[in-house]
Amino acid sequence: MKLTKDAYLSLYETMLRIRFFEETARELMLGGKLGGFLHLYSGEEAIAAGVCSELTKEDCICSTHRGHGHIIAKGGDIHKMMAELYGKATGYSQGKSGSMHIADIGMGIIGANGIVGASIPITNGVAFALRYLKKDAVAVAFFGDGASNRGTFHEALNLASVWNLPTIFICENNHFGMSTPQGRAMKLKRISDRASAYGIAGVTVDGNDPVAVKEATHEAVKRAKSGKGQSLIECVTWRHHGHYIGDPAAYKDPAEQKLWLSEERDPIPRFEARLLKEKVANAEELDGLKNKVRDVISASVAFAESSPDPSPESMYDFVYMPDEA
Protein backbone atom coordinates (compact mmCIF):
# COMPACT_ATOMS: atom_id res chain seq x y z
CA MET A 1 0.00 0.00 0.00
CA LYS A 2 1.46 3.34 -1.09
CA LEU A 3 0.64 6.05 1.42
CA THR A 4 0.92 9.80 1.16
CA LYS A 5 2.90 11.74 3.73
CA ASP A 6 -0.36 13.02 5.18
CA ALA A 7 -1.70 9.50 5.56
CA TYR A 8 1.46 8.38 7.35
CA LEU A 9 1.46 11.34 9.67
CA SER A 10 -2.23 10.96 10.34
CA LEU A 11 -1.66 7.38 11.52
CA TYR A 12 1.20 8.61 13.68
CA GLU A 13 -0.76 11.47 15.17
CA THR A 14 -3.73 9.23 15.97
CA MET A 15 -1.45 6.82 17.80
CA LEU A 16 0.09 9.70 19.73
CA ARG A 17 -3.32 11.05 20.70
CA ILE A 18 -4.28 7.68 22.08
CA ARG A 19 -1.00 7.08 23.91
CA PHE A 20 -0.87 10.52 25.48
CA PHE A 21 -4.52 10.37 26.45
CA GLU A 22 -4.05 6.97 28.08
CA GLU A 23 -0.85 7.82 29.90
CA THR A 24 -2.35 11.08 31.12
CA ALA A 25 -5.45 9.26 32.35
CA ARG A 26 -3.17 6.79 34.11
CA GLU A 27 -1.28 9.53 35.92
CA LEU A 28 -4.52 11.22 36.85
CA MET A 29 -5.92 8.03 38.30
CA LEU A 30 -2.76 7.15 40.19
CA GLY A 31 -2.81 10.72 41.50
CA GLY A 32 -6.30 10.16 42.81
CA LYS A 33 -8.06 12.48 40.38
CA LEU A 34 -10.11 9.85 38.52
CA GLY A 35 -12.33 7.15 39.94
CA GLY A 36 -13.85 3.99 38.55
CA PHE A 37 -12.15 1.50 36.27
CA LEU A 38 -9.70 2.44 33.56
CA HIS A 39 -8.67 -0.15 30.99
CA LEU A 40 -5.81 1.36 29.03
CA TYR A 41 -5.19 0.84 25.34
CA SER A 42 -1.47 1.69 25.48
CA GLY A 43 0.44 -0.65 23.20
CA GLU A 44 -2.53 -1.40 20.96
CA GLU A 45 -2.73 2.00 19.23
CA ALA A 46 -1.77 0.76 15.79
CA ILE A 47 -4.99 -1.23 15.54
CA ALA A 48 -7.47 1.57 16.17
CA ALA A 49 -5.39 3.97 14.07
CA GLY A 50 -5.05 1.55 11.18
CA VAL A 51 -8.68 0.42 11.14
CA CYS A 52 -10.27 3.83 11.55
CA SER A 53 -8.03 5.38 8.89
CA GLU A 54 -10.00 3.30 6.38
CA LEU A 55 -13.43 4.35 7.66
CA THR A 56 -15.63 7.26 6.63
CA LYS A 57 -17.84 9.26 8.97
CA GLU A 58 -20.82 7.13 7.89
CA ASP A 59 -19.07 3.91 8.84
CA CYS A 60 -19.76 2.86 12.40
CA ILE A 61 -17.75 1.23 15.15
CA CYS A 62 -18.75 -0.63 18.31
CA SER A 63 -16.15 -0.80 21.00
CA THR A 64 -15.19 -2.43 24.28
CA HIS A 65 -14.29 -1.70 27.89
CA ARG A 66 -10.82 -0.85 26.50
CA GLY A 67 -12.38 1.68 24.19
CA HIS A 68 -10.59 5.04 24.45
CA GLY A 69 -8.35 4.26 21.50
CA HIS A 70 -11.21 3.38 19.18
CA ILE A 71 -13.13 6.50 20.09
CA ILE A 72 -10.14 8.77 19.58
CA ALA A 73 -9.25 7.13 16.27
CA LYS A 74 -12.82 7.48 14.98
CA GLY A 75 -12.79 11.18 15.74
CA GLY A 76 -14.26 11.38 19.23
CA ASP A 77 -13.97 14.68 21.09
CA ILE A 78 -11.04 14.44 23.52
CA HIS A 79 -12.41 17.16 25.77
CA LYS A 80 -15.75 15.41 26.19
CA MET A 81 -13.95 12.11 26.76
CA MET A 82 -11.70 13.48 29.46
CA ALA A 83 -14.62 15.28 31.10
CA GLU A 84 -16.53 11.99 31.12
CA LEU A 85 -13.62 10.24 32.84
CA TYR A 86 -13.83 12.96 35.46
CA GLY A 87 -17.60 12.37 35.75
CA LYS A 88 -18.37 15.96 34.81
CA ALA A 89 -21.54 17.47 33.36
CA THR A 90 -19.65 18.36 30.16
CA GLY A 91 -18.66 14.76 29.49
CA TYR A 92 -20.04 12.71 26.64
CA SER A 93 -22.74 11.24 28.90
CA GLN A 94 -22.91 14.01 31.48
CA GLY A 95 -21.08 11.81 33.94
CA LYS A 96 -23.35 8.79 33.58
CA SER A 97 -20.98 6.53 31.68
CA GLY A 98 -17.41 7.03 32.79
CA SER A 99 -14.69 5.32 30.82
CA MET A 100 -16.56 2.25 29.68
CA HIS A 101 -19.66 3.51 27.89
CA ILE A 102 -18.60 6.46 25.76
CA ALA A 103 -20.37 6.98 22.45
CA ASP A 104 -20.70 9.66 19.79
CA ILE A 105 -23.53 8.62 17.53
CA GLY A 106 -22.95 11.50 15.10
CA MET A 107 -19.38 10.31 14.56
CA GLY A 108 -20.43 6.71 14.03
CA ILE A 109 -19.17 5.68 17.46
CA ILE A 110 -22.07 3.52 18.60
CA GLY A 111 -20.54 2.90 21.96
CA ALA A 112 -17.94 1.35 24.14
CA ASN A 113 -19.31 -1.46 26.29
CA GLY A 114 -18.53 -2.76 29.75
CA ILE A 115 -19.57 -6.34 29.04
CA VAL A 116 -16.93 -8.38 27.25
CA GLY A 117 -18.23 -9.53 23.86
CA ALA A 118 -21.53 -7.67 24.06
CA SER A 119 -20.81 -5.18 21.32
CA ILE A 120 -20.03 -7.83 18.68
CA PRO A 121 -23.66 -8.79 17.92
CA ILE A 122 -24.77 -5.17 18.39
CA THR A 123 -22.44 -4.32 15.50
CA ASN A 124 -24.53 -6.63 13.33
CA GLY A 125 -27.61 -4.64 14.29
CA VAL A 126 -25.84 -1.49 13.18
CA ALA A 127 -24.73 -3.16 9.95
CA PHE A 128 -28.29 -4.37 9.35
CA ALA A 129 -29.59 -0.82 9.79
CA LEU A 130 -26.95 0.61 7.45
CA ARG A 131 -28.06 -1.80 4.76
CA TYR A 132 -31.76 -1.27 5.53
CA LEU A 133 -31.25 2.49 5.19
CA LYS A 134 -29.34 1.93 1.94
CA LYS A 135 -26.10 3.48 3.20
CA ASP A 136 -22.85 2.58 1.50
CA ALA A 137 -21.16 1.97 4.84
CA VAL A 138 -19.78 -0.75 7.08
CA ALA A 139 -19.99 -1.52 10.79
CA VAL A 140 -16.85 -2.56 12.64
CA ALA A 141 -16.74 -4.58 15.85
CA PHE A 142 -13.66 -4.28 18.04
CA PHE A 143 -13.11 -6.97 20.66
CA GLY A 144 -10.33 -8.94 22.28
CA ASP A 145 -9.07 -12.50 22.25
CA GLY A 146 -11.02 -13.19 25.43
CA ALA A 147 -14.30 -12.08 23.86
CA SER A 148 -13.84 -14.56 21.04
CA ASN A 149 -14.69 -17.28 23.57
CA ARG A 150 -18.10 -15.80 24.28
CA GLY A 151 -21.22 -17.10 22.58
CA THR A 152 -21.94 -13.59 21.35
CA PHE A 153 -18.87 -13.78 19.08
CA HIS A 154 -20.06 -17.02 17.53
CA GLU A 155 -23.69 -15.91 17.21
CA ALA A 156 -22.51 -12.70 15.56
CA LEU A 157 -20.14 -14.24 13.03
CA ASN A 158 -22.85 -16.71 12.09
CA LEU A 159 -25.57 -14.10 11.59
CA ALA A 160 -23.31 -11.68 9.71
CA SER A 161 -22.39 -14.49 7.38
CA VAL A 162 -25.84 -15.94 6.76
CA TRP A 163 -27.41 -12.48 6.29
CA ASN A 164 -24.37 -11.19 4.37
CA LEU A 165 -24.17 -8.07 6.53
CA PRO A 166 -21.54 -5.35 5.98
CA THR A 167 -19.80 -6.21 9.26
CA ILE A 168 -16.06 -6.33 9.91
CA PHE A 169 -14.74 -8.11 13.00
CA ILE A 170 -11.49 -6.79 14.48
CA CYS A 171 -10.03 -9.10 17.11
CA GLU A 172 -7.34 -7.36 19.13
CA ASN A 173 -5.33 -10.29 20.37
CA ASN A 174 -3.30 -8.91 23.26
CA HIS A 175 -2.70 -12.45 24.56
CA PHE A 176 -4.67 -12.14 27.78
CA GLY A 177 -8.33 -12.36 28.75
CA MET A 178 -7.86 -10.26 31.86
CA SER A 179 -5.14 -12.43 33.45
CA THR A 180 -5.71 -15.70 31.64
CA PRO A 181 -3.26 -16.32 28.79
CA GLN A 182 -4.79 -17.24 25.44
CA GLY A 183 -3.30 -20.74 25.63
CA ARG A 184 -5.27 -21.53 28.79
CA ALA A 185 -8.53 -20.35 27.21
CA MET A 186 -8.43 -21.87 23.71
CA LYS A 187 -6.55 -24.54 21.84
CA LEU A 188 -6.28 -22.58 18.60
CA LYS A 189 -3.18 -20.45 18.10
CA ARG A 190 -4.74 -18.23 15.44
CA ILE A 191 -8.09 -16.74 16.33
CA SER A 192 -8.63 -15.87 12.67
CA ASP A 193 -8.99 -19.62 12.06
CA ARG A 194 -12.41 -19.30 13.68
CA ALA A 195 -13.60 -17.40 10.60
CA SER A 196 -13.67 -20.51 8.44
CA ALA A 197 -16.30 -22.07 10.73
CA TYR A 198 -18.67 -19.34 9.58
CA GLY A 199 -17.68 -19.16 5.93
CA ILE A 200 -16.05 -15.75 6.20
CA ALA A 201 -12.55 -14.46 5.46
CA GLY A 202 -10.03 -14.67 8.28
CA VAL A 203 -6.58 -13.13 8.41
CA THR A 204 -3.96 -12.53 11.11
CA VAL A 205 -1.86 -9.39 10.90
CA ASP A 206 0.82 -7.61 12.91
CA GLY A 207 -1.31 -5.51 15.18
CA ASN A 208 1.59 -3.26 16.10
CA ASP A 209 2.02 -2.09 12.50
CA PRO A 210 -0.64 0.48 11.61
CA VAL A 211 0.00 0.06 7.90
CA ALA A 212 -0.51 -3.70 8.02
CA VAL A 213 -3.77 -3.16 9.90
CA LYS A 214 -4.81 -0.46 7.45
CA GLU A 215 -4.15 -2.71 4.47
CA ALA A 216 -6.17 -5.58 5.91
CA THR A 217 -9.01 -3.22 6.76
CA HIS A 218 -8.94 -1.75 3.26
CA GLU A 219 -9.55 -5.21 1.81
CA ALA A 220 -12.26 -5.95 4.37
CA VAL A 221 -14.13 -2.72 3.67
CA LYS A 222 -13.96 -3.39 -0.08
CA ARG A 223 -15.28 -6.91 0.46
CA ALA A 224 -18.09 -5.80 2.76
CA LYS A 225 -19.23 -2.88 0.58
CA SER A 226 -19.33 -5.01 -2.54
CA GLY A 227 -21.47 -7.59 -0.78
CA LYS A 228 -18.75 -10.23 -1.02
CA GLY A 229 -18.73 -11.05 2.65
CA GLN A 230 -17.38 -10.41 6.09
CA SER A 231 -13.87 -10.47 7.52
CA LEU A 232 -12.34 -11.46 10.80
CA ILE A 233 -9.03 -9.63 11.17
CA GLU A 234 -6.92 -10.80 14.08
CA CYS A 235 -4.44 -8.11 15.08
CA VAL A 236 -1.68 -9.48 17.27
CA THR A 237 -0.59 -6.98 19.86
CA TRP A 238 0.32 -6.51 23.53
CA ARG A 239 -1.28 -4.61 26.38
CA HIS A 240 1.42 -2.48 28.01
CA HIS A 241 -0.33 -2.27 31.38
CA GLY A 242 -2.49 -4.58 33.47
CA HIS A 243 -6.09 -5.34 32.66
CA TYR A 244 -7.02 -2.14 34.47
CA ILE A 245 -5.11 0.41 36.49
CA GLY A 246 -4.33 -1.33 39.75
CA ASP A 247 -3.66 -4.71 38.16
CA PRO A 248 0.12 -5.21 38.47
CA ALA A 249 -0.05 -7.93 35.78
CA ALA A 250 2.10 -10.33 37.76
CA TYR A 251 0.88 -13.07 35.42
CA LYS A 252 2.96 -11.67 32.55
CA ASP A 253 6.38 -13.12 31.76
CA PRO A 254 8.82 -10.24 32.50
CA ALA A 255 11.01 -11.09 29.50
CA GLU A 256 8.01 -11.03 27.19
CA GLN A 257 6.77 -7.80 28.70
CA LYS A 258 10.21 -6.24 28.16
CA LEU A 259 10.33 -7.43 24.57
CA TRP A 260 6.91 -6.00 23.69
CA LEU A 261 7.71 -2.66 25.32
CA SER A 262 11.02 -2.36 23.48
CA GLU A 263 11.48 0.26 20.77
CA GLU A 264 11.39 -2.50 18.15
CA ARG A 265 7.95 -3.71 19.25
CA ASP A 266 6.14 -0.74 20.78
CA PRO A 267 4.04 0.50 17.85
CA ILE A 268 4.88 4.17 18.32
CA PRO A 269 8.72 4.24 18.42
CA ARG A 270 8.67 1.49 15.81
CA PHE A 271 6.56 3.60 13.44
CA GLU A 272 8.63 6.67 14.22
CA ALA A 273 11.78 4.81 13.16
CA ARG A 274 10.07 3.81 9.95
CA LEU A 275 8.98 7.36 9.18
CA LEU A 276 12.51 8.59 9.73
CA LYS A 277 14.14 5.75 7.80
CA GLU A 278 11.81 6.14 4.83
CA LYS A 279 12.29 9.90 5.07
CA VAL A 280 8.56 10.53 5.34
CA ALA A 281 9.29 13.13 7.98
CA ASN A 282 12.22 14.41 9.99
CA ALA A 283 12.64 14.31 13.76
CA GLU A 284 11.65 17.93 14.08
CA GLU A 285 8.30 17.35 12.40
CA LEU A 286 7.59 14.37 14.62
CA ASP A 287 8.50 16.33 17.73
CA GLY A 288 6.23 19.10 16.55
CA LEU A 289 3.35 16.66 16.33
CA LYS A 290 4.11 15.34 19.79
CA ASN A 291 4.01 18.83 21.25
CA LYS A 292 0.76 19.58 19.46
CA VAL A 293 -0.89 16.42 20.78
CA ARG A 294 0.42 17.01 24.31
CA ASP A 295 -1.20 20.42 24.23
CA VAL A 296 -4.52 18.90 23.11
CA ILE A 297 -4.48 16.44 26.00
CA SER A 298 -3.43 19.08 28.54
CA ALA A 299 -6.24 21.31 27.34
CA SER A 300 -8.70 18.43 27.81
CA VAL A 301 -7.56 18.02 31.42
CA ALA A 302 -7.98 21.74 32.04
CA PHE A 303 -11.41 21.62 30.41
CA ALA A 304 -12.47 18.65 32.55
CA GLU A 305 -11.14 20.12 35.78
CA SER A 306 -12.87 23.44 35.23
CA SER A 307 -16.18 21.78 34.26
CA PRO A 308 -19.08 21.56 36.70
CA ASP A 309 -20.24 18.36 38.33
CA PRO A 310 -23.61 17.07 37.14
CA SER A 311 -26.52 18.26 39.25
CA PRO A 312 -28.01 15.63 41.59
CA GLU A 313 -31.36 15.84 39.84
CA SER A 314 -29.75 14.98 36.48
CA MET A 315 -29.45 11.42 37.82
CA TYR A 316 -33.05 10.95 36.76
CA ASP A 317 -32.54 12.13 33.17
CA PHE A 318 -32.64 9.65 30.31
CA VAL A 319 -33.75 6.54 32.18
CA TYR A 320 -36.34 6.75 29.40
CA MET A 321 -36.44 8.80 26.23
CA PRO A 322 -39.53 10.96 25.88
CA ASP A 323 -42.32 9.62 23.70
CA GLU A 324 -42.92 10.79 20.16
CA ALA A 325 -44.90 13.99 19.95
Partner: peptide, 15 residues
Amino acid sequence: GQIVSLGVGASAMGL
Protein backbone atom coordinates in the same frame (compact mmCIF):
# COMPACT_ATOMS: atom_id res chain seq x y z
CA GLY B 1 -28.36 -12.82 22.36
CA GLN B 2 -27.88 -11.88 18.74
CA ILE B 3 -31.62 -11.30 18.24
CA VAL B 4 -31.80 -8.73 21.03
CA SER B 5 -28.46 -7.21 20.02
CA LEU B 6 -29.75 -6.90 16.47
CA GLY B 7 -32.56 -4.83 17.86
CA VAL B 8 -30.21 -2.74 20.02
CA GLY B 9 -27.88 -1.94 17.14
CA ALA B 10 -30.61 -1.38 14.57
CA SER B 11 -32.78 0.77 16.82
CA ALA B 12 -29.74 2.85 17.83
CA MET B 13 -29.47 3.66 14.12
CA GLY B 14 -33.10 4.78 13.88
CA LEU B 15 -35.01 1.63 12.94
